[in-house]
Design a binder for these strands. Structure first.
Length: 591
RNA sequence: GGGCCCGUAGCUCAGCUGGAUAGAGCAGGGGACUUCUAAUCCCCAGGUCGGGGGUUCGAAUCCCUCCGGGCCCGCCA
């Protein structure tokens, strides 16, 4: 009785063999029908056999159904629209209930995918130059939910893959210099609160001490004016720096600023419920051997032209070759990323998943090619030969990039253009304070990552109480309330061995099946990397419960019936709570 | 010009490994609280699934093409 769909498949397989001496066609589908009135499991087998047998699908369906009917395991077998539909026997409901009552039973959905090896998810990876904003939050939440499922599944079921969650800190390069320069500017102008950005810059254009420091950082006044970070947090860093250090030292200032920004990010992530195992520093790539080793390895595919170093990505389907080192001697971001992915391979990851904003999609191909090259070369394989096998770099599956569509921000219906440099962006922190973690996580998850997310701040604040998350929470709180009453006022207890599926009505049986479906939802969530399936399922389940609640009085006069209903709703409560827990959304006992 | 994603109800979106009558929330109209929490439920209205072609017993789903929208296309990060 593992799974009713599987059972049906086995039985049909035998019948087809017996009746027609045929194997099951590959395309034969055994599934849970979307429309519940069609039964508990169904198959389209008659359509697929029609051609080979040169028979009417209807007759085939009837013949098979007739045979299936002889089997006691099915309570009912019918043919509707030439689909064969079967209904579970009561015994199966006992099985469902006992399964559902295992802790986090739905995590078994992960087991069915049979993951193995060493898996890494990398997400968020924001520049440590300022607070996180809403765009970061989306990737963060998606990464967090996917990895939470995998982590928990591994723990609960002792599955034999490994999983690491990584944050890549871009703590090298120009944006760090800009951050340092921006803080420096504020240190020199802490008393000038009423001046605009341009005025601040102008006020220092003849300040020799300032200009010398700026030179040491390696940023010009013009660059600072155009590209400097303007947010208020820069002032905060400046003030904090002065509290900790007596005088200005550029190296200290840089470290302090980076640290401040990174700690700020970590705090935001923590409050959003997003966790990591590893914070990986870009700088460490240059300080260690990885950078050099990666480029040495790629040497056969690197050449010099017009004073720059190029990687021959065009050999593997890229539009053109890509620059690794600019003619001015600076390494490109691409070169750093190559070293970073070299490090991932060297650390033994067999499945690497990066979650990026969709605006980086043009970058996916070159990085996949570079990683593919490193992977081949590390394993002494000829990349060109290997490439013939996979034909297209898209088929290189060790590295996958999940592209998350951007978050568009609205305020009262007006789009707010976000710019981190100019400081005109709404921070995650602001939203956490005003809307709260639960609502942010839930709203962000109710859309597929392939769809842009329009987020209206005012609407989110104003309608906080009408948010879908409350609908689900309310279902949980309502059940909790009934259970309290059953215990305190009626002195009932609803032990599982008192479960009697015979007395359940159709609606109640459907609820039970619906609960069991959580396992399938988790399986699909991981398979399709689509965490939005969970909130949709939760809304559906909550709706089914609310409907049931309003049509059926749980605490009735008949004790056995009442107890069975209590068993059912406490199972609903359990699934709601455990799935909300995966989303890291609180499930309240009272509202 | 090339690439990725999207186009489903007035709005925001699910459904897309092909299946049975295309779903939900919000907005609109109408009902249900002396009864376990009305943050709820029920009913009504609203659709040529962007257009056209193809594959198939069967297409919102797969393929082609056109139209419309977003994002990207640097020796930026």
């Amino acid at each position: 009785m593992e799974n009713m769909v599987e059972v049906l498949k086995e039985k049909v397989e035998k019948v087809v063999k017996k009746l027609y001496d045929l194997k099951l066609p590959e395309k034969a589908k055994f599934e849970i029908p979307k429309n519940k009135s069609y039964g508990d499991a169904s198959t389209n087998i008659s359509f697929l056999l029609a051609k080979t047998l040169r028979k009417n699908p209807k007759d085939i369906a009837q013949e098979i159904a007739g045979k299936l009917q002889e089997d006691e395991i099915f309570e009912k077998v019918e043919v509707i629209n030439n689909f064969i539909n079967v209904k579970y026997s009561p015994k199966y409901y006992s099985y469902l209930l006992s399964e559902i009552n295992k802790p986090y039973f739905f995590l078994e959905g992960v087991k069915e995918i049979s993951l193995k090896g060493k898996i890494q998810y990398e997400y968020v990876s924001a520049n440590p130059t300022g607070p996180l904003h809403l765009g970061h939050a989306r990737g963060a939440i998606i990464g967090d939910v996917l990895t939470t499922i995998l982590k928990r599944a591994k723990e609960h079921l002792s599955l034999d893959y490994q999983l690491d969650r990584e944050f890549y800190i871009n703590d090298a390069g120009r944006q760090v210099k800009l951050l340092t320069a921006s803080v420096l500017l504020r240190i020199f102008t802490l008393d000038k609160n009423d001046l605009s950005w341009e005025e601040l810059i102008t006020s220092l254009k003849d300040n020799e001490e300032f200009l010398n420091y700026l030179k040491e950082i390696g940023i010009t006044l013009e660059e600072l004016k155009e590209e400097g970070y303007r947010g208020d947090y820069i002032k905060e860093i400046a003030q904090e720096y002065l509290k900790n250090y007596k005088k200005i030292n550029i190296s200290d200032l840089e470290k302090f600023s980076l640290n401040w920004a990174l700690n700020n990010i970590k705090k935001d992530l923590k409050d959003l419920g997003v966790e990591f195992d590893i914070f990986f520093s870009e700088k460490s790539l240059y300080e260690g051997k990885d950078f050099k080793e990666a480029l040495d390895l790629l040497k056969p595919y690197i050449y010099e032209k017009e004073g720059a170093l190029w990687l021959k990505t065009s050999l593997f389907g890229d539009d053109k070759d890509r620059v690794l080192r600019k003619s001015n001697g600076d390494w490109t971001y691409f070169a750093g990323d190559i070293a970073y992915h070299y490090s991932k391979l060297k650390r033994g990851y067999t499945k690497i998943i990066n979650i990026w904003g969709h605006d980086h999609h043009g970058y996916v191909k070159r990085l996949k090619i570079a990683t593919f090259l490193l992977d081949c070369l590390l394993n002494n394989k000829n990349p060109e030969e290997e490439f013939k096998n996979i034909k297209n770099i898209d088929n290189y599956q060790k590295l996958n990039v999940i592209l998350v569509q951007l978050v568009k921000l609205f305020r009262n219906g007006q789009e707010v253009k976000m710019s981190k440099r100019k400081g005109t962006f709404v921070t995650l922190r602001e939203l956490l304070n005003e809307v709260g973690k639960d609502a942010i996580r839930f709203i962000f998850l109710t859309k597929s990552h392939e769809t842009p997310l329009d987020f209206d701040i005012e609407l989110a604040k104003k309608e906080a109480n009408e948010n879908p998350v409350y609908y689900v929470k309310y279902a949980h709180a309502r059940i909790a309330s009934i259970l309290r009453k059953a215990k305190n006022e009626f002195d009932l207890d609803w032990n599982l061995d008192r479960f009697n599926p015979e007395i359940l009505n159709e609606e109640e049986k459907n609820l039970l099946k619906n609960l069991f479906f959580a396992k399938e939802i988790i399986k699909r969530t991981i398979q399709k990397q689509a965490p939005h399936l969970i909130p949709y399922y939760l809304l559906d389940l909550a709706s089914a419960f609310h409907k049931y609640y309003s049509s059926c009085k749980i605490l009735g006069n008949e004790k056995e019936l009442t107890i069975n209903r209590l068993i059912l709703i406490s199972a609903i409560k359990k699934v709601l709570k455990e799935l909300l827990d995966i989303l890291k959304v609180n499930a309240p006992e009272k509202m």
